[in-house]
Amino acid sequence: MLAPPREDLLWQGRSSFPGTPTSIGDSRAWVRTRLVEQGIEPPADLEVVLSELATNAIRHTRSGTPGGRFALRVLAYPDRVRIEVRDGGPFEDIHPLHPATPALLDEHGRGLLLVEAFSACWGRLPSRRGVYAEVAR
């Protein structure tokens, strides 16, 4: 769900990134830098969660096609940091968003399991073009 800024909002920021693998690290660095500039210690698991959501946007939506982009919104509160990754939309009219259980030796498929493990809550944005996650501080 789209979170309206609450009264206790400490900071919010937005940026967008090209839908390329290098943007995953760039988005993590952007969030870390902006939070530290505001005197907000980034939660330990925030970068893992952001990496997984940005990776999924690039791998599983139009954000990863030539010229594609994903947008990032960050809201920092005294008790948590919320990240929203908006993507370019699904390739088809379906957009699965549930953690799957990969086979033991699979190299991929654990991203949403990590998001679920490290987030206080997470889910699809109302636009159905992205996801959010909230990580406790």
Rank of each mutant, 00 (worst) to 15 (best):
G13W: 00
W122Q: 00
P99L: 10
G130H: 10
A44P: 00
D26W: 10
H108R: 13
V115F: 05
D26R: 05
G111N: 03
I24N: 01
T33G: 11
I40Y: 05
G19M: 04
L46E: 02
L113T: 13
T101K: 14
D106A: 08
A54F: 03
Y77S: 12
T61F: 04
T61L: 05
G64N: 01
T22M: 07
H95Q: 13
P90Y: 11
G68N: 10
L35V: 00
F70A: 01
A100M: 11
P78Y: 03
V131T: 15
R73I: 12
F91K: 03
S127E: 10
E116H: 14
G39K: 13
V74D: 07
D106R: 07
E37S: 13
R28P: 02
R73D: 08
V49P: 01
D87L: 06
C121E: 11
D8T: 15
L50T: 03
A3M: 05
S23G: 09
D93H: 15
G25P: 05
L105D: 15
R129H: 14
S23W: 02
Y132F: 14
V135P: 02
A44T: 15
P66C: 04
I94N: 14
T65L: 12
D26N: 08
S15M: 07
G68W: 11
R14V: 06
D45T: 06
P126Q: 07
L125D: 03
V81A: 13
R34Y: 01
D106K: 14
I83R: 09
S16C: 12
W11L: 10
C121N: 15
Q38A: 04
E107W: 09
V115I: 09
G130N: 01
S63I: 02
T22A: 09
W30L: 04
M1L: 14
R73G: 01
E107N: 03
L112R: 12
T33H: 14
H95T: 06
W122L: 08
A136M: 13
I94D: 15
I58W: 00
L10N: 04
G111R: 07
V81E: 10
L50F: 00
D45C: 09
D79W: 02
V48W: 00
V31G: 07
E84H: 07
D26C: 10
P99I: 11
S16F: 12
Y132L: 09
L35T: 02
V115C: 04
S16V: 12
R6M: 13
L10Y: 03
I83P: 06
A76G: 04
Q12I: 06
D45N: 15
L112W: 10
R6N: 14
R80K: 13
A71F: 11
A3Y: 12
A44W: 15
A71V: 03
P5G: 06
R34S: 04
V74K: 01
L9T: 06
R59C: 09
D8R: 15
A76F: 02
